[in-house]
Design a protein around this nucleic acid. Structure first.
Lengths: 238, 238
DNA sequence: TAGGGTTAAATTGCATGCAACGCAGCGAGG
DNA sequence: CCTCGCTGCGTTGCATGCAATTTAACCCTA
């Protein structure tokens, strides 16, 4: 029951500002707002049926969190993602998440260990069939995010968690399991499993190393898809 | 002159919100606001002679940036620093700043190289005399901060810079050169110099390694001072 | 027709008033 | 004596109106 309390307070924010904050984030993630599109205070206030004040405050917060950029006397607009941004995020993840795996290995509690295993098992089951449906891929993406999140939390470094939330969650976490072929998917699941094994073995460097491999593999897949867009000179099959 | 433009715009913010934001930050850093102290919107609005609106917006921003913590319907208060926080910050710096040194080594421009050298030379000169005055120590602290900042900027990873600004600047960067004895001070200055040498030599791992040593030495000095405070069982002179 | 200046519309920035919420102090009941 | 509930005060949360600023269109002029 301890878990229920924060869950309720986060999914049903009591203040209007928090609701607007949540709503805008959802719209950005779902693509309702295009990159570089300005978000107008008045129109959003009308749509959400609140005054401009909570909208303004939510926008300020989202700017500080990196979702929007504010131009004085001009407004707030959705940040546009470039390949450079993707590079920066991967550079940071490649250093921070292995570190988190290392620390988690030393600090992990039994309860957290259980949650991680449950997530890993569920993901393995979903990626078992030869053809993984889009719905399954979507669920895997969510579970995968939870797995990483849980592991980072287990590192017992609140700032590390905050930093990764800011850096990663504003990026293209979602829907990027679509480009995983079956082998890559299963390899990714095996990585999760191996991290748990390293934790059980009490080897922080092992866990750290597997996480590093895990992310390098993910980056490779990402670049395979995105590079053609910035290197049109290369001959591409797809 | 390129440096003058952003300097002006940051020291003379045009909007009231930015002014309040700046003012509060200064008060926190200067110790005007004690840890856990609540900042009341009305009183601050009176003092700064603005309405509550820009004060509220500035407070929201500072919460997002980690300077304050907000309790709904209760207010915003200055975050209290614990030894745990210090540990977390050092853990992150130990990973991120060496990474920045490594990257900077590959990306550094000539102009940036010049600025770093100028800062290093100035710091060396200030730490030369046998007895370093408090004023000199203060200037060294500022120059040191600029040096690290410049190096991180040179890493050409905007997110890395943002993350370190958030993590480090809210911490006790300032005035912690007081506990450096003369040997530690000169060692620290030599580290800066050696980082420049590593850059000139084009060896990222060398630069990374020196930065790592640099921070480990700083952590050691920090712990030597702070540990007695959380271990009251130890017999203390003070 | 091109360029500069002016003006008007739209939007953000700020001020103020009122409502909602939390908390301390006080009093009644067990 | 302790506990529970109520009430009053202070503070934050939100709504609304007005001022300041920017943008863009328009007209006038060369």
């Amino acid at each position: 029951m301890l878990k229920a309390a924060p869950k309720v307070s986060s999914s049903i924010p009591r203040t209007a500002t928090a609701q607007v904050h949540h709503a805008i984030k959802q719209r950005i993630l779902s693509g309702d707002y295009q990159p570089d599109e300005y978000i107008r205070e008045s129109s959003l206030a009308r749509e959400l049926e609140v005054s401009r004040t909570p909208v303004r405050e939510a926008l300020r917060e989202l700017v500080s969190e990196g979702w929007l950029e504010a131009i004085p006397h001009q407004g707030a607009r959705v940040v546009a993602w470039t390949e450079r941004d993707a590079r920066e995020v991967f550079q940071l993840r490649l250093v921070l998440e292995p570190m988190a795996a290392n620390l988690a290995c030393q600090k992990l509690t039994a309860a957290c260990r259980e949650r991680l295993e449950a997530l890993a098992i569920r993901m393995e089951a979903l990626s078992e069939p030869d053809s993984v449906s889009p719905e399954a891929r979507n669920e895997i993406a969510i579970l995968n995010h939870d797995f990483h999140r849980e592991l980072i939390l287990a590192s017992d470094n609140q700032r590390l968690f905050n930093v990764l939330e800011m850096v990663v969650r504003t990026s293209i976490i979602r829907r990027n399991f679509d480009q995983y072929d079956h082998k890559a998917l299963q390899r990714s699941m095996r990585h999760h499993r191996e991290i748990l094994q390293a934790i059980d073995a009490g080897s922080p460097t092992w866990a750290e190393s597997v996480m590093y491999s895990h992310l390098l593999a993910a980056r490779d897949l990402h670049e395979a898809v995105s590079e053609p867009m910035i290197r049109p000179s290369m001959h591409q099959a797809t």
